[in-house]
Nucleic acid binder design. Sequence first.
DNA 1: CTGAAAGCGCTTACAG
DNA 2: CTGAAAGCGCTTACAG
Lengths: 356, 356
Amino acid sequence: MSRTRPTIHDVAREAGASIATVSRALNGGVVSAAARGRIEAAVARLGYRRNDVARGLVTGRSGLVGVVLPDLVGPLYAQMARGIEDVLDEHGMHAMLVTDHLEPAAERRAIELLRARQVDGLVLIGSRLQTAELRAAAGSVPVAHVQRDGPDDDAPQVRLDDAAGVRAAVEHLVAAGHRRIAHLAGTRRDGVERREAFLAAMAEAGLEPGPIVGGAFTEEGGEAAAAIVLEDPDVTAVFCASDRMAVGLLHAAHRRGIAVPDDLSVVGFDDLTWARYLCPPLTTVRQPGREMGRAAARLILGGAPDPTEPVLRVTPTLVVRASTAAPRSHDPAAPPRMRPRPAPEEVIAPDIASPP
Amino acid sequence: MSRTRPTIHDVAREAGASIATVSRALNGGVVSAAARGRIEAAVARLGYRRNDVARGLVTGRSGLVGVVLPDLVGPLYAQMARGIEDVLDEHGMHAMLVTDHLEPAAERRAIELLRARQVDGLVLIGSRLQTAELRAAAGSVPVAHVQRDGPDDDAPQVRLDDAAGVRAAVEHLVAAGHRRIAHLAGTRRDGVERREAFLAAMAEAGLEPGPIVGGAFTEEGGEAAAAIVLEDPDVTAVFCASDRMAVGLLHAAHRRGIAVPDDLSVVGFDDLTWARYLCPPLTTVRQPGREMGRAAARLILGGAPDPTEPVLRVTPTLVVRASTAAPRSHDPAAPPRMRPRPAPEEVIAPDIASPP
DNA sequence: CTGAAAGCGCTTACAG
DNA sequence: CTGAAAGCGCTTACAG
């Protein structure tokens, strides 16, 4: 049992062939049946495995696609990564994932690190880099974007059809009878696009938009924005630019004794895995992360992108659950809308002793 | 603008030095200040980046740790991955993540793929492989396990102190006044260990264990198991081996009109990110995934493991939320426990047309 | 402090 | 069908 792993030379010696012949046998080249047999036997006997790093050095292809994404813990990006892996797998390639936590400096570092590892392509999720910064970091490595946050250029990208999703959400609320609809808007690029789509959809419905409050795409952002929106007593529905903001809104509403959906209808955006478990289960626009990942991987593998239309749009789906309903009729005799409840308690046990 | 990336030879020529000197300059070796200056200028001018693949070939170290994990979409494993990256980062190393979706064949493939990429170590999360299978696949690459599902051997591993978590959960329920406590048990190894810990904790409390039903660690598994457990009218509390099972139980209880926590207290296990958003927010045992990942990475980087005690135990925390309360007193005049409610509706909009 | 040379483990024309 | 040779981009003793 040698300490060091067998190389192609060991196989060649064991099989009585040259390393060139072993290499050909290993890669499906033309080799006599006899030689192939001896080589396969030697490989098995030695437990030989090809060193893909050395191979990549000479072929100039690593078989790796670098993926930089904000994080893995939010289910959406993880689903995108899964979609990328789906199609890479079909091509015998693999993904190398690096997170940047939405920091441009970290994104640049991630790209350079991936480049140093000789990735054959790069999928950037939610990239914030400008065209020039990106060119400097990625050099000549092919890049495909998913829901790019920075400005477009001719790099191929897949985007959600945000406008279609927003329109479906607004139409759903309008059809239910809502007239004054507020919006919790995100400050990132897709948040801005959703906000514009919200305004367009409201105009299309012949309605004045309700209050619009911007914030981070997070629970806290949603809670802060909700505090403002809920001041307006005529608002009967809120469209949130993300599920996480919707959670914050749900909290704020609960705290103020506003019942969802009886007093207030709420629509989210993304359909994160837990959206169906919320209280009440959230009506939301589903972002098909896995498919978006698949599409991006195909853009990378597909070779030259179509320069006339580098944007591939993916269509979202409205999922109707229990957080939306018809507005309560404006009966002045109806019970007051605000009846404060205590905040939900959460206690973390100070300590659990391990057994000694 | 050359089509091909500059190599160390280009830098050497540009700087009027040998590639050996350039290499030393790049790696912090002894180099005259003058040479260093010329080399740095040349690197900047050419936009040179070291090829880490070539470097790895000669140094025999890739700077990569392979991580194989069940999936990325469940937040727990993603958190473990994040913890691994935390400490790898501190050492200038990186993780390469491959998912196996709980399939042993996929796990073996993942390990071999990672080995072909010359990873310097392997972190296996929830590995199901036997000692011999693992040895065959991993060869001489150092391995550290997290919550290994297969049998132990002398490979270093980090495990949750499942028993301590279970004990805290049971003590919490007993202290609240519960006497008949059921258990939804998982069938994986940690599920079995939690089940045994449940029996031990009940015995310690001087109580008969309530019904114990096994199932998969999933929402469906929980729902199926719940159907059986809820047949027992004396059960006032259920301890679930995972949060996902608890979700299934919550659904089943809701469908039967059993109020949580008024009629039934529920405790989960894991504290997945959304556990706090459940209806009601779930009391659960928090599994510190990120810390477990950190610990595993340290095990890999730390060199020789301690063969006398290869298991590193991590302590969980009980998080008390709103799904547990004192049992309702057994007043025969109390309203009946069962009042069926309609299942929550979920409708997926058939289609959203994209703009043409 | 510096450079020529060997070598990491492979693939790929090029002759035979 | 097969092998000797060159080379992928780097690092590292070894002399100087």
